Amino acid sequence: MAGEELEGASKKERLIEACRRNNTDLLTEIIEDCKSEEEVTALLNDTTTVLGNHLYHEAALAGNYEVIDMLLDQPNFECDPLTRREGDTPLHSAIRWINSEPPAQRPFGNALVEMMLEAGSSPRAKNKGGLTPVQLVDPANQGLRELIQKHEYASLNAGDFINADEAPLRHGAVMGAQQQQQQEDESDEDAEFSGSDEEERAEWERRRKARKG
């Protein structure tokens, strides 16, 4: 779409063009023309092409790093929208682009994918064919496979590890609570004894030993 044609285009058509052409100036202009963050969010997340691709897909299918970087900085931007036909996420789309490029582009492609993963793209999402992003990677591109698998492993194990410095504190807190409970139990037992005579004391001692035993 030429510059003259863009003048009469809708905001959504201009957005699609900006993402396809890596036109950060046009994208900035459209975003700044929005009246609120909510309008920006709705516009960027809901705009789709006639084929059902979102803006993020269009940028990823062309490997447009700069535009993707801008999109990911926007409020509440959706990282894993799906295409209508294949059910691809933008991460799937980026990998399809990398697969079509010569090996010399792999370092750039890896940097793009890493940025997307760090921004929140899921490495485990499956498309309609049941394939995750890593399953689309060219087998010869071992570096990209390892990169995605590293993020997949991290997402699977998030929250499973305990800080070693915190463990003694947690243990101490548990032990302290147990000791406090024991003291409270003994206090309750003491309250049961009125101390009126020796037989009553003997009976109380017997019950106390039975509880502890």
Rank of each mutant, 00 (worst) to 15 (best):
R20N: 06
R20L: 06
R21A: 01
R21V: 02
R21T: 03
R21C: 03
R21P: 02
R21Q: 06
N22I: 07
N22L: 05
N23R: 05
T24E: 05
T24K: 04
T24N: 10
D25M: 11
D25S: 15
D25H: 14
L26G: 04
L26N: 09
L27F: 05
L27I: 00
L27Q: 02
L27G: 01
T28A: 04
T28K: 04
I30R: 04
I30D: 03
I30V: 06
I31R: 00
E32A: 07
E32H: 02
E32Q: 06
E32M: 03
D33G: 06
D33F: 05
C34F: 08
C34S: 12
C34Q: 13
C34Y: 12
K35R: 11
K35Q: 10
E37G: 06
E37C: 07
E38K: 14
E39A: 13
V40C: 08
V40M: 10
T41F: 10
A42Y: 11
A42L: 09
L43V: 05
L43Y: 02
L44K: 01
L44E: 01
L44H: 01
N45S: 03
N45L: 02
D46A: 14
V50P: 15
V50R: 14
V50G: 14
L51N: 13
L51Y: 12
L51H: 13
G52F: 02
G52E: 08
N53H: 10
L55I: 00
L55A: 01
L55G: 01
